[in-house]
Each structure stands twice: as C-alpha cells, then as structure tokens.
Design a protein around this nucleic acid. Structure first.
Length: 216
DNA sequence: CGCTCGATATTCT
DNA sequence: GAATATCGAGCGA
C-alpha cells in the first residue's frame, strides 16, 4: 500500500465537525490528518498521520467513560466545548489523547485517538519512541511518538496555529466496528472504529487481535 | 506467533 | 486498598 507523503497542509476541521454524536465523530475522524508541530533544534518540525483507529466515550450512558461519575478535575475537558484535546495519564506511564465531541444535548463526550498511520516525520517519531516498530499503533504509542503530554490538555485542535490540530484527509466509509479495548465495563458497546483499508497496519500489533472478536 | 506478567501514579471505593 | 481507555519484556511453541 502506497501512502503519499504529506507535502501540503489541508484545512483544519471546524468546530461543527465535532458538534455531533460522539460515535459519528469517532467514525468521521478515520482518515483525517492528525498534525503535531514541534520545536526541535531551533526549527519547527511537522509530524502528521492519518487517524486509523478511534474509540468513542460518552457520559451517563457509558460506565467505561471517565465522565460517567460527573465532572472532576481530570475529566473537565470532556464537559467543555467540542474540538479540544483531553489528555490523561494512565498506568503511571502513558498519556492518552482524546478530542472532545458531542451533540448539543449531550453533556460530555470524547474520542480516543488509538492509532495513526505516519505521513511525515516518521524518523522523528522513531526517535521519540526509541523503537523501530509499532510507532503509532496504540494510544500510548501515539502520544509518545508525537511527544504529547499533560501540557497539551485543553488545546484547540480546530486552530491551525495550535501545535496539535486535525485536518481534512480521506473520507473513509470502509469501517470495522468492535468492542473497545482495555476496559472492563460496558464491553457490550461496539464503539471502537477502524479504517478497514488500513487494517493490515494494525494486524502487526498483538493487542489488536481482539479486532475480530465482534466482527468479521 | 500468542500468552502472561510487572511497572508505576492517579483516581475511585 | 483496588482498579486502571497501556506497553513491552520474557517465555513457550
């Protein structure tokens, strides 16, 4: 599969993109371009990749969501305006990056960015990860490869000037759905989404074998 | 390839 | 105290 290098920047997705049902946004984000601008050795480096795996997290309807028990310090972004980054620290080691998204009548919601397919800056990602394989497959790996941490919680991803932004890319309609990964509650909800055309990129990763539990 | 297990800090009960 | 939206090393086949 040939992936075209990213030589130009497509426009940012606007606020209204995220002001829809969280699961719809999770599906729509597949194929969109996740961009991280990074100051390195006195220059601005751009890291970018297609979003190829996401998960939706809700509110009172979703016991697996951080928002389930109501607003707290950690999850406050999930209750705020849509199109912003919600970053949290997990297992004492990893960061996970979400984008807030929900309908007007929903109180909280966010989409977890689980995996991307590198388009530019793969060499930098490799250095950040200190690994040569599985660079950006898995939420903890995405944030490590792109150097994302708690400092980025609350960033507006609809602004081109933000150091993290999400841009127009592919319109994906070949979507695989499955149960979410790594949760013990609400396992019955098929709120994990994968761009089917890129599924071969995920297959290398062992944790993704759960992929076919629900579908295929 | 697939499975098990430890790391390690914040949040929840 | 227990659980956690994870990762990678180590092991056996």
């Amino acid at each position: 599969m040939a992936i075209e290098p990213l030589n130009y920047l497509t426009p940012c997705l606007g606020r209204t993109f995220y002001k829809r049902d969280t699961n719809e946004v999770a599906k729509s984000l597949l194929g969109k371009i996740f961009v991280r601008k990074l100051a390195l050795n006195g220059r601005i480096i751009r890291l970018a990749g297609y979003i190829i795996e996401t998960e939706a997290y809700g509110y009172r309807d979703d016991p697996a969501s951080h928002a389930f028990n109501g607003p707290r310090q950690r999850n406050s972004m999930m209750f705020g305006e849509v199109g912003f980054l919600y970053v949290y620290f997990l297992y004492g080691k990893h960061f996970c990056a979400n984008v807030t998204a929900r309908k007007n009548d929903a109180r909280a919601g966010a989409v977890l960015i689980r995996s991307i397919l590198p388009l530019t800056g793969q060499d930098i990602m490799s250095k950040m990860r200190n690994h040569s394989s599985n660079l950006t497959i898995g939420p903890g790996r995405v944030t490590e490869a792109m150097s994302i941490s708690m400092a980025h919680n609350g960033l507006d991803v609809t602004q081109e000037t933000s150091c993290i932004s999400i841009h127009q890319g592919l319109d994906i309609d070949d979507i695989i759905t499955s149960a979410r990964i790594g949760i013990s509650k609400a396992n019955d909800r098929p709120w994990r989404y994968i761009a089917a055309r890129f599924v071969s990129c995920l297959k290398l990763q062992n944790s993704v074998n759960n992929l076919f539990k629900l579908h295929c």
